[in-house]
Write a protein that binds this DNA or RNA. Structure first.
Lengths: 176, 176
DNA sequence: CAGAACGTTGAAAATATTCTAAACGTTCTG
DNA sequence: CAGAACGTTTAGAATATTTTCAACGTTCTG
């Protein structure tokens, strides 16, 4: 497979990764290189192929390993760490959904919960009704998202309709 | 509803947004403020509440409107633009999936397609077999993702199992 | 029609992120 | 055990992103 074909794949995947919000451009490029290479590559080989410093490649490779997108392999006869692309994309996607998206969703749920508690402490009865309704709606929606991600990670169908059904809420009242 | 309760919700949602990969911290803060405010706010009111310059708020609000997370409302008796939070989160999520995630997925599919074409032109028969297999596997997987997003956007259940089934592979052969 | 009230734009400042090169600590080799 | 071969860390340089302030163009008001 010709070098410039690989190079253009590498850069294309780098661009796609950069706009994904999950991997950086260089992470995408490293993965792409490993993906089209038949056999594991060392840090130095990757660095040379991608024109990057070894230290930088070291850092990015670690992220890829952490997402289960790349596997570290020991190569007999060499002291260097070698890496190859993982082929179980679904596993990697599970990891990303579970650890990245779900973590963000949980952050929202935490904030909502804390705010609800704060509202209960500082204002009584009617005066914060609007806020309470909105917080409840937000919590419900993200609760469904959380459940949806959970279902996806376990390989179950994602119940999109439920999501659509949850929301319409907390109507606006005029003020001033 | 007390100001410091709102402030802490605003900052919490800002933090969650910053780690989402979709909205920036300020975008999250603006949305949070509007979400807990009963009635529309002007650019100046938002800027004052969040301690941001009006020009910056103008830019971020535009993004939120673009994602259908915030609606522009004309308020009788005022020349200013006013904004309020949208409550149909599902609509916003559809927008995000369709325009952001799907766009990234399509980028990958394009790169794969172009690379496949390049391989066919530059190398014949066996010598690029490994690369061809891998490209095909990647294309299949992302094709499924694309279909899955399409299903989600249309409100249909997301077929996670199909995803899990597609992949295993393009096995590795030793080299050197 | 003059001036004020807007939202937006563009250039520069502030800040955050990414990358490199050198230093370091460890593990292997002879 | 001395030195080479590694991967990682760190401090600073290079780049990108975010934010502000001032200028601008338009729309309303008197």
């Amino acid at each position: 497979m010709h070098d410039d074909v690989v190079a253009s794949f590498v850069d294309g995947m780098g661009a796609a990764s950069a706009s994904s919000g999950i991997l950086s451009q260089q992470q995408g490029r490293i993965f792409a290189l490993l993906f089209l290479t038949d056999g594991p590559l060392s840090l130095d080989e990757i660095a040379a192929a991608l024109d990057q410093s070894k230290s930088n490649v070291s850092i990015h490779v670690r992220v890829l390993v952490d997402w289960h997108l790349v596997k570290r392999r020991s190569v007999p006869g060499s002291r260097r760490d070698h890496y190859e692309a993982a082929t179980d994309f679904f596993r990697a996607f599970q990891e990303i959904f579970e650890r990245r998206f779900r973590w963000t969703v949980r952050q929202v749920l935490d904030v909502v919960g804390e705010t609800q508690r704060a509202v209960d402490e500082t204002s009584s009865g009617q005066d914060a009704r609007f806020g309470r309704e909105r917080l409840a709606a937000l919590g419900n929606f993200f609760g469904m998202i959380d459940a949806g991600i959970g279902a996806f990670v376990r390989g179950e169908p994602f119940p999109a309709q439920k999501l659509a059904a949850v929301i319409p809420l907390a109507s606006r009242r005029t003020r001033r």
